[in-house]
Deep mutational scan, measured.
Amino acid sequence: PPDDERKKAEKAARSGNEEKAREILERLGYSEDEARELAKRLR
């Protein structure tokens, strides 16, 4: 489910793995720019 994926992205971002967070968010349908912004904010 998307919620689980989003949680994974948050966890990745918090542990400093912004790249992985961005990949997950892009898979969820965010654009590259949106995903980058979100990954930064989740950190």
Score class of each variant (00 low, 15 high):
residue 8 K to M: 13
residue 26 E to K: 13
residue 20 K to M: 13
residue 26 E to M: 15
residue 34 E to K: 05
residue 24 I to R: 01
residue 13 A to Q: 03
residue 2 P to V: 14
residue 15 S to T: 09
residue 16 G to W: 04
residue 13 A to E: 03
residue 28 L to W: 04
residue 4 D to L: 14
residue 18 E to P: 04
residue 40 K to T: 09
residue 36 R to Y: 08
residue 23 E to S: 07
residue 32 E to P: 15
residue 37 E to K: 11
residue 12 A to Y: 15
residue 12 A to E: 12
residue 1 P to N: 15
residue 22 R to N: 02
residue 17 N to G: 04
residue 11 K to I: 15
residue 41 R to M: 12
residue 36 R to E: 06
residue 18 E to D: 06
residue 7 K to L: 14
residue 34 E to S: 06
residue 4 D to G: 08
residue 11 K to D: 15
residue 3 D to P: 09
residue 29 G to T: 00
residue 29 G to L: 00
residue 9 A to H: 04
residue 25 L to W: 05
residue 32 E to I: 10
residue 31 S to E: 03
residue 2 P to L: 14
residue 41 R to Q: 14
residue 26 E to Y: 05
residue 26 E to A: 08
residue 33 D to W: 10
residue 31 S to L: 02
residue 13 A to L: 06
residue 28 L to C: 07
residue 30 Y to W: 06
residue 37 E to P: 00
residue 27 R to G: 13
residue 34 E to V: 07
residue 1 P to S: 15
residue 6 R to T: 08
residue 11 K to M: 15
residue 22 R to T: 05
residue 36 R to F: 07
residue 14 R to K: 13
residue 39 A to C: 03
residue 29 G to K: 01
residue 37 E to T: 09
residue 20 K to P: 03
residue 22 R to Y: 05
residue 2 P to I: 13
residue 15 S to M: 12
residue 8 K to D: 09
residue 38 L to N: 01
residue 15 S to N: 13
residue 5 E to M: 14
residue 14 R to G: 05
residue 6 R to P: 03
residue 23 E to I: 09
residue 10 E to H: 08
residue 17 N to L: 07
residue 37 E to Y: 09
residue 4 D to E: 14
residue 43 R to Y: 12
residue 36 R to W: 07
residue 20 K to R: 10
residue 7 K to A: 13
residue 32 E to F: 11
residue 34 E to Q: 09
residue 37 E to C: 04
residue 32 E to D: 06
residue 32 E to T: 12
residue 35 A to G: 02
residue 25 L to H: 00
residue 16 G to H: 05
residue 18 E to T: 10
residue 3 D to L: 10
residue 13 A to V: 04
residue 2 P to K: 11
residue 30 Y to V: 02
residue 3 D to V: 09
residue 3 D to F: 08
residue 42 L to P: 01
residue 32 E to N: 07
residue 11 K to Y: 14
residue 19 E to V: 09
residue 9 A to C: 00
residue 25 L to E: 01
residue 36 R to I: 10
residue 33 D to L: 13
residue 11 K to H: 14
residue 32 E to K: 14
residue 8 K to P: 04
residue 6 R to V: 14
residue 25 L to K: 00
residue 17 N to S: 06
residue 23 E to G: 04
residue 7 K to P: 04
residue 13 A to F: 04
residue 8 K to F: 07
residue 5 E to T: 08
residue 18 E to G: 04
residue 21 A to R: 02
residue 40 K to A: 13
residue 20 K to V: 12
residue 24 I to F: 04
residue 28 L to E: 01
residue 5 E to G: 07
residue 29 G to E: 01
residue 33 D to P: 07
residue 38 L to W: 07
residue 14 R to L: 11
residue 40 K to P: 00
residue 15 S to C: 12
residue 10 E to K: 08
residue 8 K to L: 14
residue 22 R to A: 08
residue 40 K to F: 08
residue 7 K to E: 11
residue 17 N to I: 02
